[in-house]
């Protein structure tokens, strides 16, 4: 819930050629059960298709799942695409990301990185923190 009692809207997607969506589906269920409205884009998205959907859906948070070692390329590209569209929407990355790469991603503007084994409560808390840290992204 946002401070005004409305559900947090979050977009979940996978970018590019990466078919591992089981984890993202678990996350979608967990966020739904935490009271979020989850716009599920699923597989084979581009940074552009995510930005267009984020604008139309007016989401507060973007969650990107990565399991193909593309995070150092696509993570910063996603943040840049959001900024280029003039949006203030935090991007969270989940999936397989080596710990050594996390500081690089955060320096590139990724809000947080949630790896395997992250408790679902932590996922929910991170989404809430991201939405709260970017108040311009929700009404």
């Amino acid at each position: 819930m946002t401070p005004d009692g409305l559900p947090i809207r979050i977009l979940l997607a996978k970018l590019g050629f990466d078919g591992h969506d089981r984890g993202l589906k678990v996350i979608a269920r967990s966020l739904r059960d935490a009271g979020c409205e989850v716009v599920y884009l699923g597989l084979r998205q581009t940074t552009e298709s995510v930005v267009i959907a984020a604008e139309q859906e007016d989401v507060a948070v973007i969650g990107i799942s990565m399991h193909n070692a593309g995070h150092l390329t696509l993570g910063p590209m996603m943040v840049q695409a959001v900024a280029d569209a003039g949006l203030d929407i935090p991007v969270i990355i989940g999936g397989i990301v080596p710990a050594a790469d996390v500081p690089t991603l955060k320096a590139a503007g990724i809000f947080d990185v949630l790896g395997p084994g992250t408790p679902l409560e932590t996922v929910v808390a991170t989404v809430h923190a991201a939405a709260a840290a970017h108040p311009g992204s929700s009404v």
């Binding site: 979608a28 966020l31 739904r32 935490a34 599920y40």
Partner: peptide, 16 residues
């Protein structure tokens, strides 16, 4: 969800 108020909005997948 009548219990949590949350929702999974998945219609866009089919429209892609």
């Amino acid at each position: 969800s009548p219990l949590t108020g949350g929702a999974i909005l998945g219609d866009r997948i089919r429209m892609q």
